[in-house]
Design a protein around this nucleic acid. Structure first.
Lengths: 341, 341
DNA sequence: ACGCATAGATTAATCGTTTAATCATTGCGT
DNA sequence: ACGCAATGATTAAACGATTAATCTATGCGT
C-alpha cells in the first residue's frame, strides 16, 4: 500500500474549503481566473495549514525538477567553498536547488557522478572538469567552468589576464628574475596562469618555472623546494600559481631565514581563506566567483528554458572570461636588487 | 499543454515490447513475478534505449524523494570541503542524493535554508548549526553535527579528547607553559577543545588563553598576536584551536625570527589541506570525517526508514562522539626550556 | 474429472500537481 | 429579448512509476 500521507495537499485544502483542486492551484499560483476574495481565503487557509507543495507532483506534471547539479573534481579542493557558495547562491536566487556530486578520484567517477545526477532528474549541471577531461555531452545542458583555453568552456576567470596582473605588479616593484611555482603542468588553469605571467614580463625581465609534482616525483612528497638556492641564483620574486603553493614557498623561505618581502616577494592565486591571515599577508589574484557563478547559472537556466532539459548541450555564455583582481598585501615588495630610480 | 516528453519511460518500453507497464516495472525492479527470459529481454531493451527511471514519478508514488539536505553555516569555512565530501560519499553509498544549502550570514538564513530544503522534499537533513543555534525541529528527521556539549547533537568529533591529545603530546615534549589560541569564545567546538587541553595538563604545566576576536576588536583585523612577547614570557608551546589560527601563529613567529619548533612549538586542529604543506609541517589533531559522516547518515537513514520522513525528530546515534587522531609533524618538538632528563 | 495451488502476466488505482477544455452565470449592447 | 463576451468556477486528463488485486493458464494430487 502507498504510505499514508500526512501533510496537507491541494485536494485536502479544496475539500475543506468546498472548492475544486484546480481553483486552489490557480489561487496559489495566481494563474487562472479566481476571484480576489476566494483567492485570499484559499491562501490564508493554505498558510494556516502549513501547506508545502509537493515537488514530486509538480515535477512529474511539469517535467521540471527545479534542481541543478554541481560536479566537482574534488570537493576537498580549497577552492570549493567559495565556488559552491557562489553557485548555491546564484541557483537559489534563480529558484533552483543544487545537488552536489564529487568525482573524487578517477575520470570514471566523474562519469558516474554525472549519471547519478541525471538519474536524480537535474535539469542541467555545472561541471568543474577533471584535468584533461572532455565532457561528452550528458543528456542535459551543461555549463563548464575551467579556463578559456579549455574547449567547451562556458565561463571562467581570465587566468591569463590574472597572470599578467601578477607580472605587472612584480614589474612595478622592480623584480627582474621571477620563479613561477606550479603544481602540475597538465592543468589548463595553471598553464594559462603561467602563460599570462610570462606574457606580462617586460624588457629585462626573465622567468623560470618549477613544477612541484615533478620535483616530488624525484625527491618524495613534501620535499623542500630549494628556494634558498633560487634566491642565491638571483630570483627575487616567487609567483606561485595557487595560494597553496605560495604558502608552501612563503613558509619555506621564512624557515630558511629569508625575509619576505624584504629579500624575496611571494605571490599567489585565488585568495584562499588563509591568505589574509598569514604573516606577511599574501599578495594574490582573486577570481570573482560571484560573477562567474551568476553567469554560469544564468546561461544554464536560459538554455534550459529555451532548449528544454533533455538536450545534451554545452552551454555558452556571452562573456566567457571574467577578469581577476589583484589584491596587493604584504608578501610582495620592492626588489632588493632593483635598479635605483 | 504538458511539454512533449522525449526520453523512454515504462509505458514506451512496454508497448514497444508488447507487454504491460507493470511487467516492465517488475522486471526492472525484480519485485513481482516475471519469467527469467522475459525479464532479461526487458532489461536489455531498457538498457539499449538508455532508460532512466523518472525520480519524479517514483517519488510521487512512493513518497520518497531519495534526497537528503546538508545545511552548512558557512560553506566558505575551510572545514567543509572534507565534511561535504564525506557526507556526499556516505549519502551516495546509502543511495541518497545531497542537496546543499548555505545559511550564510544570519540565523534567519539558516531557517530559510531549512525551509527551502523541505520544499524540495528532502527526506531528512544533516545540519551543522550556527553558533548558539538550537535547531527547532524541522518537519523531517534532522541529524546535527556540532560537538557533544551541544544539546541535541547527533554525532561529532570528540573535541575534548582531541584537546587532551594535544596536551599529552606537549607534555611529553616537556612543555610547561602553553598558550591556547582560539578565535571565538562563543563557539562550543572551540570551548570543548580548549577545555580538553586544560584538562589534559599535568602537574607543573599551566596555560593561558588568547581569543583572537577579542584582540581584533581592540586592535583591528589582522593585527599581530604579539607572540614574540609571549615567548619572552616563557610560553614554549602555542596550541591553536584550529589550523587556521595555527598557521597565523606559525607565520607570525617565523616572521619574527623565532624558530619553530626549536624555540616554540605550534599545534592546530582539523588537519586542513595546507597543514602538511607548510614548512614546518603542522602538528595537528584530525577529525575522522568519514566515520562522522557515516554515523550521521546511517542514523538519519535508519530514522527515516522506521519513523518516516514527515516526523520532525532529532536523530540520535549509538556513538555520539568520534575520537580525534593526533598527527605529529614538524611544528612541534621538545621544549627548549624542558628539564633535562 | 475435478479442485486447487501456483507461476506469469495484466488491470487499474494511486501519488499531487498543472492546465486545457468546459460549464454556468451575469452583464451589456443593440 | 437575444446574442455575445467576460468572469469565475469546475472537470478531467495527463505526467511516470508502483503495487494490490485480479485474471489465465498450467500442473498436479486425489
Amino acid at each position: 500500500m502507498p504510505p499514508a500521507r500526512s501533510g496537507p495537499n491541494l485536494s485536502r485544502i479544496a475539500t475543506s474549503l468546498g472548492v475544486s483542486v484546480a481553483t486552489v492551484s490557480n489561487a496559489l499560483s495566481g494563474k487562472g481566473r479566481v476571484s480576489e476574495q476566494l483567492a485570499e481565503r484559499i491562501k490564508e487557509h493554505a498558510a494556516s495549514l502549513g501547506y508545502v507543495p509537493s515537488q514530486a507532483g509538480r515535477a512529474l506534471r511539469t517535467g521540471r525538477s527545479g534542481v541543478l547539479g554541481l560536479v566537482l573534481p574534488d570537493i576537498a579542493n580549497p577552492l570549493f567553498p567559495k565556488l559552491a557558495q557562489a553557485i548555491e547562491f546564484a541557483a537559489t536566487t534563480a529558484g533552483y536547488g543544487v545537488l552536489i556530486a564529487d568525482s573524487r578520484g578517477s575520470v570514471g567517477a566523474q562519469t558516474e557522478a554525472i549519471n547519478r545526477l541525471i538519474e536524480r532528474g537535474v535539469e542541467g549541471m555545472v561541471i568543474v572538469p577533471r584535468r584533461g577531461t572532455r565532457i561528452s555531452a550528458a543528456s542535459c545542458p551543461v555549463a563548464v567552468i575551467d579556463t578559456a583555453s579549455t574547449p567547451g568552456n562556458t565561463v571562467a576567470a581570465d587566468h591569463i589576464q590574472g597572470g599578467r596582473a601578477i607580472a605587472d605588479h612584480l614589474a612595478e616593484l622592480g623584480h627582474k628574475r621571477i620563479l613561477i611555482i606550479g603544481n602540475n603542468p597538465g592543468s589548463n588553469v595553471q598553464n594559462d596562469r603561467a602563460g599570462g605571467i610570462r606574457s606580462g614580463l617586460r624588457a629585462g625581465m626573465s622567468s623560470a618555472t618549477l613544477w612541484i609534482e615533478r620535483l616530488e616525483r624525484d625527491r618524495g612528497d613534501g620535499c623542500p623546494l630549494g628556494l634558498k638556492e633560487k634566491v642565491k641564483e638571483g630570483f627575487t620574486a616567487f609567483a606561485a600559481l595557487s595560494d597553496l603553493q605560495a604558502l608552501r614557498a612563503l613558509t619555506e623561505l621564512q624557515r630558511d631565514g629569508i625575509d619576505v618581502p624584504a629579500t624575496a616577494s611571494v605571490t599567489g592565486f585565488d585568495d584562499l581563506i588563509w591568505s589574509p591571515v598569514v604573516t606577511p599577508a599574501l599578495t594574490t589574484v582573486a577570481m570573482d566567483m560571484g560573477t562567474i557563478a551568476t553567469i554560469a547559472i544564468s546561461s544554464l537556466v536560459r538554455t534550459i528554458q529555451t532548449m528544454g532539459s533533455r538536450e545534451g548541450i554545452l552551454v555558452t555564455a556571452d562573456a566567457d572570461r571574467v577578469p581577476m583582481r589583484l589584491i596587493a598585501r604584504q608578501s610582495s615588495g620592492p626588489s632588493a636588487l632593483a635598479d635605483p630610480l
